[in-house]
Design a protein around this nucleic acid. Structure first.
Length: 449
RNA sequence: GGCCACGUGGCGGAAUGGUUACGCAGAGGAUUGCAAAUCCUUUUAUCCCAGUUCAAUUCUGGGCGUGGCCUCCA
């Protein structure tokens, strides 16, 4: 099999994936901060890295891949949101986590190997902070512990920034208690009514980035293969993770840094703060998870994905076609049909290939139909059987018996050349989402949408 | 202000130093009472200007445009 190639943010190039240990492939992907319901921008990394997880398992064997996706269940936004809703922060994070899990399932994502929570790893975070303090990479100031970025010369290597550039036009008010404006907090004091943990630096809570360094270390060791997430995490989150992990462990954190492009709306980044987001919850009411999944896979993961309804319609039409050849059997994908994914997860090319398989299948080629199924299943599609798929979300007020009797009535009218009546019946059914197809010997019906 | 990414037909979207994918939509035809479905055929594109080259959409430089980051963000 040809080797897997991935776009590495670190080198800004496509690189051949060479595992640190081919019997133990390790991938860490930044999961959600559970303060609000996930939107489709959040869905993209779930889907992208789910496909990568499947590819790695296929290449190296299912038991040789460890995929960690954390849940950040303590941070300022969580505290703010729980205060606003006047509920305990644990209650909020549990509710959002539950919803998040439903969304993952809805989108056809496999469960990661581990899904650690930040609040279960406070001790591990404190351990790293201690190390950084001892090594003088961090300093204490009024109950805070800050990472001193001036002590880490290669700070900014991932995001191609320099400390000098960062200071040039900062839009954030410069904190007086930091040595450098770019220093970031490892530990901060909590107010009396905020969640807090005891530490030698005082009662407080961890800063934003330290949880990922702690959890990746615990589950994947100090160095691992792939670290992934959305493009907006490159700076400062991943940059800071690199700094603190490297300085604490004196080993590189991850070899391949993989980032998915933004989901945009009218070319503008989808974000909570822009108020241009659509939650997965909202979408559930209207679309099947596979439709959303395929729509997102139409675009290469490094490119921006501009959200619009036309793409969902295209995805639905495509799946309707492909599902005609659904086979209820577990068929293994062959190498030819998988190679597209090895080239930096070129799913658009894989989809083109599935269209070709579809055309051969239509000509009666069973092997193509089988590989169409295998390809779709590999991408996490075809998670329902054919019958359930075509019934999904179909609404009509007419009972099947009535449909059949109307069809009979119409066909009688057609025999008597009473086309006015037959067209009336057809229009009536169409208004109720029933589309008729007259074949040689019988009239078939299906849902229009 | 600094840094970065992107610009392909009506829409979505790959790829490539030469032969210009693919899907949706559109057009014409077959078929049909008319449709639908199906089948066949088919139109339309590489932001602009230079340079390198036998040849550039692809490489280089400049311009224009759009977007992103500069400690909320997937």
């Amino acid at each position: 099999m040809q080797s897997l190639v991935l776009s590495n943010t670190l080198s800004k190039k496509k690189e051949v994936f060479k595992p640190l240990d081919k019997n133990n492939i390790r991938m860490y992907v930044c999961g959600p901060t559970v303060y609000d319901f996930p939107h489709i921008g959040n869905a993209r990394p779930l889907i992208v890295f789910d496909v990568l997880f499947r590819v790695l398992k296929k290449i190296f064997g299912g038991d040789s891949v460890t995929y960690v996706r954390n849940i950040t269940d303590i941070d300022d936004k969580i505290i703010k949101s729980s205060n606003e809703k006047n509920i305990e922060f644990k209650k909020l994070t549990e509710e959002i986590t539950k919803s998040f899990h439903e969304d993952c399932k809805f989108l056809g994502c496999l469960k990661p190997t581990f899904e650690p929570k930040a609040t279960d790893h406070i001790d591990q975070m404190i351990e790293i902070i201690d190390t950084l303090l001892n090594k003088k990479y961090a300093y204490e100031q009024k109950g805070h512990v800050f990472f001193d970025i001036s002590k880490f010369p290669s700070y900014g290597s991932l995001s191609k920034k320099t400390i000098k550039d960062l200071n040039a036009g900062s839009r954030v008010e410069i904190s007086k208690i930091k040595k450098n404006p770019g220093d970031f907090v490892l530990w901060k004091p909590s107010k009396y009514n905020e969640p807090s943990w005891d530490s030698k630096y005082g009662k407080g809570r961890p800063g934003w980035h330290i949880e990922c360094s702690a959890m990746s270390k615990k589950y994947l060791n100090t160095s691992f293969d792939i670290h992934g997430g959305g493009l907006d995490l490159v700076f400062p989150h991943h940059e800071n993770e690199i700094a603190q992990s490297f300085c604490a462990n004196e080993k590189f954190l991850a070899k391949y840094w993989i980032h998915n492009g933004y989901v945009t709306v009218n070319k503008k980044k989808m974000a909570k703060s822009e108020n241009n987001f659509i939650t997965i919850n909202d979408l559930k009411k209207k679309y099947n998870g596979q439709t959303i999944r395929l729509a997102m896979l139409f675009t290469h993961y490094t490119q921006p994905f501009d959200w619009n309804e036309k793409i969902l319609k295209d995805a639905k039409i495509t799946l309707d076609k492909w599902y005609e050849f659904y086979i209820d059997d577990n068929i293994k994908i062959n190498e030819n049909n998988l190679t597209f994914l090895l080239d930096d997860l070129n799913i658009p090319n894989m989809i083109t290939n599935i269209h070709k398989l579809y055309n051969y299948a239509k000509e009666g080629d069973l092997e193509s139909a089988k590989q169409l199924n295998a390809s779709c299943k590999f991408l996490g599609l075809f998670s329902q059987n054919k019958e359930t798929w075509f019934k999904f979300n179909k609404k009509t007020s007419i009972k099947p018996e009535e449909i059949n009797s109307l069809i009979n009535e119409r066909n009688n009218a057609r025999k008597n050349k009473n086309f006015k009546k037959s067209d009336e019946i057809r229009d009536y059914l169409l208004k109720n989402n029933i589309l008729l197809e007259d074949e040689a010997n019988e009239t078939k019906w299906k849902f229009k949408e």
